[in-house]
Design a protein around this nucleic acid. Structure first.
Lengths: 339, 339
DNA sequence: TTGTAGGCGTTATCAA
DNA sequence: TTGATAACGCCTACAA
């Protein structure tokens, strides 16, 4: 049914070796041979079997992406970035969703391993970091988003500048107390780095910053509105409570906003609000929400380029800077209420 | 370096055939052989090569998913559903992002074809439907989301019930004119079916319904707020204009809301609002947005089960009904203003 | 129940 | 520059 390399060879009147050389571009081939082979391949609708080629060359041309939780929309731009670069270099992307479970994560990593992926992208904190480490030690090129962003200095300096900018803005509006709200587990990598930056930038401007970990709702689809409301009410309305709430992630933001709405806390009248991560909902909200955009697509692209570089497929990693963080001030950040 | 089936055979003191039979579960194997082989496999950290096995069996154990535009967040639950079911049956999922371009789509389909995917899921309207059709005709099991949802009768009846429910609600509040706002191109499948349903359900209650196609912003990340505002202003404030705006997709909703905010149209005072598709932003909005949830994860799961069924891997397709559409009434739908 | 052996479709080596 | 050929790692008749 499906044509194979031998049929192409027969059709072109050459040997299979020549067909292979022409189509892969590896090895010499005369202009005439090239012409006839490509013509025959097109005529027959030939498409070489990736399995056979992988088996022979020991290269699967597949990049695996381990996603801790595919329900989280922030992975989307990231995935897109990985896909984009991978595709440019003939690579396919296999997505492995760990569904927030260590066992599923292990199964998924095993599957990726069986596919003999050429490289692995870890798109967040894995549930079982040891397993990932073991893969890396066994020679698989691994790019970990947490480590990567913390190490990419261009990105870090961009973030520093933006955090400074935000704190300036807040100080100018008279804010003295800031609360940084993050979800559940304390992240080591990027999230931890952000907090350190915020804390020191705030301190430099006489703003006290506190970090508050709000328990991730058991079911992220049905957040605990009232619970969030009472938490925020107690926080904001306590003496010397924060006058600014800064959400660590875009996914967390709507839950916080819902809590604020229930507790009837006015934005920015009673409390200013901003968040990491942008989406069409931020400007659409009333009031429009200030954001610090973080271009995760760029991170995905850079990580994938780094991997391809390590695989020897890319001469130089694109030096396009990571200067993609930006502070977009909107109505949700305003002057502190004169009480 | 990496252990091979022969090494496992040697370690277990059996032949490679026995190893294969034990590990794949196909063919007979004594309890003793099974024990020793599995032990040896674990001891050596053996993981069979998917390429070799694909080559031999002519089954890649890979399902391809063609996503017209991976930037669109609605694919996320869908992808997750596909991934979930695929994984349960040992299948890997390759994501192909067409990036809204016909050429890229073709390249991606060619790549999937080279990978010898066992089945293809099409997660939206492909840019080049002919190419997809050709693949289907060549014997590849293909599941198309548009066709699928239109044909899945359980899903359709669920949708009918929900649309009736919404229209009842609107009629009770005194609404007589409804505008259904959809993006750009008119979809043939699910989106078209929805509109037909809405139109007739509305008519049955004395509500006139009109469909308005709002041009998709060129760059979906920077929507045209003012343009949207003037469009909606002209629409809502015209004599006999609609008193209800119904957004066809969750992605469109924030752009509409931004337009309403700019035009200073009060919700629900001046105009009620609801949308297909839920997310944490809907209840967090002020006022909270009414939604018709559509569980795309369930669609992804069902489609994948259907494919596995066609591949002979699944005895019966899960008959869990599609009764997942639901109308969640929130504050954004209220009585029509008494003018 | 087990082992032997051949071949899946490609690519790399080597001799011509 | 080309062609014959031997693997790559696995699965599965078939024979024992």
């Amino acid at each position: 049914m499906r044509p194979d390399i031998r049929q192409v060879a027969a059709e072109a009147g050459v040997s299979t070796a020549t067909v292979s050389r022409v189509l892969t571009g590896r090895g010499p081939a005369s202009a005439e041979a090239t012409r006839r082979v490509t013509a025959a391949a097109v005529r027959l609708g030939y498409s070489p079997s990736a399995s056979a080629s992988s088996l022979r060359t020991d290269r699967s041309m597949i990049i695996g992406v381990l996603v801790p939780n595919l329900a989280n929309p922030v992975v989307l731009p990231f995935l897109r970035g990985v896909e984009h670069v991978a595709q440019l270099h003939g690579y396919a992307v296999i997505v492995a969703d760990a569904q927030r479970s260590p066992e599923i994560e292990r199964r998924q990593l095993d599957r990726l391993s069986a596919q003999r992926i050429d490289a692995l992208v870890v798109a967040g904190q894995p549930r079982d970091p040891d397993h990932v480490r073991r893969l890396a030690e066994s020679g698989l090129p691994v790019a970990d988003a947490e480590h990567f962003t913390a190490q990419a200095t261009a990105m870090a300096t961009s973030l520093i500048a933006v955090v400074d900018q935000v704190c300036d803005h807040l100080a100018r509006f008279g804010h003295r107390h800031l609360a940084y709200l993050a979800q559940g587990r304390v992240a080591q990598g990027i999230s931890g780095a952000r907090w350190t930056l915020i804390e020191s930038a705030a301190a430099a401007r006489g703003i006290t910053a506190q970090r508050i970990l709000v328990g991730a709702p058991a079911d992220p689809d049905r957040p605990d509105g009232p619970g969030m409301a009472s938490l925020l009410d107690g926080l904001v309305r306590s003496p010397d409570g924060p006058t600014v709430l800064w959400s660590a992630s875009h996914a967390l933001a709507p839950h916080l906003l819902e809590g604020l709405a229930i507790a009837d806390i006015a934005i920015p009248g009673e409390c200013s609000f901003l968040t990491f991560g942008d989406s069409p909902w931020a400007p659409a909200y009333r009031p429009a929400i200030s954001v610090v955009t973080n271009d995760l697509g760029a991170v995905g692209r850079a990580m994938t380029e780094d991997l391809l570089h390590r695989l020897g497929l890319l001469e130089s990693v694109s030096t396009v800077s990571f200067d993609t963080d930006r502070y977009v001030a909107r109505a949700s950040v305003g002057p502190v209420a004169s009480s």
